[in-house]
Write a protein that binds this DNA or RNA. Structure first.
Lengths: 205, 205
DNA sequence: TTGCTTGTTGAACGATCGTACAACAACGGG
DNA sequence: CCCGTTGTTGTACGATCGTTCAACAAGCAA
């Protein structure tokens, strides 16, 4: 039964980018499971199946890894919503509706993703770089929303308040959908959001 | 200048309830400052100006103190909103509006309180007792809201969706008001919330 | 095969964590 | 005045934290 000719390697080398990605994904899973209060280098390394030192080698420290995870998760959310808009076709109202209700469907409605996001929120107070990342993320989301509202013919004077309100409603529904999953369904969240949009944009067009 | 007759005491004894309250308030301040990830027995004790052992003596552990802080902060929020409703008088629509917009005025709009609340959210995933406390708090808020909606003549069939939507909008506005304080003002949040209410409840009555 | 690059490991370090507990002292009742 | 109650202190302990770094080895080039 010996296998001397192929002494299976103790570990596999990986491309730096690939290894960084696997660490980022492991960090996101740990954040979702134990929250920002319980995240640690050792927990992340174990989740990724590597040693503790590798985090320092690729990211310099756990803070940079958490920050990179924020960027990565935000990118996935943005990509998913952009895909939803593209799939909606060219009808402006449909593009807006699918952008807004996209937050209540996979992969964004995933409880693990929401828990990860809450962990980032909890770090805004304590860490300046996370606060900056949040500001950029929030501004980007609102800017995309305002563009979609403009395409629906909403006058510029009303876009700002509309975008703030829609974002708040979506965030609140998304949040509660994660914290108390049994309270209401994604379909109900969609209906509520669609009803709010109907009060802002005229039904036709 | 000697004062031998009054050798100033090294510490003051306090009523258990009073000491517990001061520890709870110190815990809330620490949660607001450093978030759930940075809270510790030593930080809380230093904030309250007492020794580390006192936390264990009065609460048994830091987890119970955090849980008690959640109860206390939730009680203060509920009290402030109930006061707003009482001050609004007997007009049903005014009571509803002041209940909803009360979240954008002191003491609830206080950034420290919001940061504390986010810290609780971040613990929902990791701690079952915090999750239960959240469910109770959320159910209580929605029940009060549904009562106010009923007083405004909203048919029962529409109350559930309306309450979920209003709660989500308020939570989202409250959240962003804390995370990016410079983005929009409490007055704007009030206007947006009032506009949403107007689409749910007929203007008269 | 040999040698080099470098991704990877795991032990070691000091700091900080939560908790336990024995000693101390403030304060009220005798 | 003294004494008992008990709120309070501060040290001690083991566990875990983030980081560092010398040694190892996987994979590629020659």
């Amino acid at each position: 039964m010996s296998n001397a000719s192929a002494p299976s390697p103790a570990f596999r080398r990986a491309e730096p980018d690939a290894r960084r990605l696997s660490l980022i994904e492991a960090c996101a899973r740990v954040l979702a499971r134990v929250g920002a209060a319980g995240v640690s280098v050792r927990a992340i390394a174990q989740e990724a199946g590597v040693s503790v030192g590798l985090v320092g080698h690729h990211f310099g420290g756990v803070d940079a890894l958490v920050s990179a995870t924020y960027d990565h998760v935000d990118g996935k959310v943005t990509e998913a919503l952009d895909d939803a808009v593209t799939r909606a076709g060219t009808h402006a109202r449909a593009r807006l509706e699918d952008f807004v209700t996209g937050s209540f469907a996979p992969p964004i409605a995933d409880p693990a993703l929401l828990a990860t996001w809450i962990a980032f929120w909890s770090l805004v107070t304590a860490r300046q770089d996370i606060a900056r990342q949040h500001d950029e993320q929030y501004a980007g989301y609102r800017a995309r929303l305002e563009t979609l509202l403009a395409d629906c013919g909403l006058p510029e004077a009303r876009r700002r308040h509309a975008a703030i309100g829609i974002t708040a409603l979506v965030d609140g529904l998304w949040l509660e959908l994660c914290l108390s999953p049994g309270c209401f369904s994604p379909e109900e969240a969609r209906d509520i959001a669609r009803g709010f949009l109907a009060t802002i944009i005229s039904k036709d067009r």
